[in-house]
Design a protein around this nucleic acid. Structure first.
Lengths: 150, 150
DNA sequence: TCGTTATAGTTTAACATTAAACCATAGCGC
DNA sequence: GCGCTATGGTTTAATGTTAAACTATAACGA
């Protein structure tokens, strides 16, 4: 078990880090650019998408889904609520929780938007073959420390 | 040349997209978490690092390095200047440009911080073998549309 | 030279984001 | 029931972030 690796090994680690962050940034920008036209931010879209797929969630769980802090979730949910796209409701049995659900307007919007979003992702990722995509998924899974989950 | 691929191919594209963004997010958070103690934000660190490695740059180029908009660079540079870590100087031959350089304080700080930062990256990426890191670099290069650059 | 266009940077308004301090509710042990 | 601790959510202060409108300088063509 070798503790210190040589400069060459380190270079690939540094390069991989930089390339990973940068490509994720570029791809994310490309895919989300059109969101501007809908008046939604990336985080707002992420919240709508999460509830759309998983059903009503509490703010803590939503924070886990889009990897943001509790304070931030408060802000984003408040802004979505102002636009009438979601509603908070107190959980009766445990009053610490809110359950955040889509309104009819919110459901309509995300139902319209999601297929287009999905297609943009498919188009953007098409520069990789299916085999390369699966390869990338494996590497990212290892990096995220996520060994068994789908 | 097939235009429409089946649902299975699409699934891997969607999955790769989600995993890419999420793993980049997780890795970035892990590596940058300790920056809080230095009082620097990720963007501020990125600017210092860019000038440290490339020498004085104009704001436009700095924006290209950390992939942020011009308005944002103005803010970040202003905050770095307030802390005395960088200075703006007007370019004499073309007065539209500023050249942003490190002050002595800025140089000292990034010189101290960078080796630790580098080591954290190496440690964080060590869950991938060198071969896997090179593999990841290739895939990210393709995704970023960056076919020839190192 | 004048008008047009391009480019670097700033400003503005709105929202995002974080860490840290805080509030309220819940759970637990005595 | 009373503290203690844990947990979900909010608030605050500071900074980041964007798109869009704007200013200033430069480049270019008629």
């Amino acid at each position: 078990m070798k503790r210190h690796t040589g400069p060459k090994e380190n270079l690939s680690a540094l390069n991989a880090f930089v390339k990973l962050l940068r490509s994720a940034d570029i791809v994310s920008n490309d895919v989300h650019r059109q969101l501007v036209a809908t008046g939604l931010t990336i985080s707002q879209f992420g919240i709508l998408e999460a509830i759309y797929h998983l059903g009503p969630l509490c703010q803590k769980d939503l924070g886990g889904k889009i990897l943001k802090t509790a304070g931030n979730i408060t802000t984003v949910i408040t802004n979505l609520e102002k636009r009438g796209l979601v509603v908070r409701s107190r959980n009766a049995s445990d009053k610490r929780y809110f359950t955040v659900s889509l309104t009819e307007d919110g459901k309509t919007l995300i139902t319209d938007l999601f297929p287009l979003h999905e297609q943009r992702i498919i188009d953007r990722m098409s520069c990789l073959s299916t085999g390369e995509q699966l390869n990338l998924i494996q590497l990212c899974r290892k990096l995220a420390g996520n060994v068994n989950h789908s």
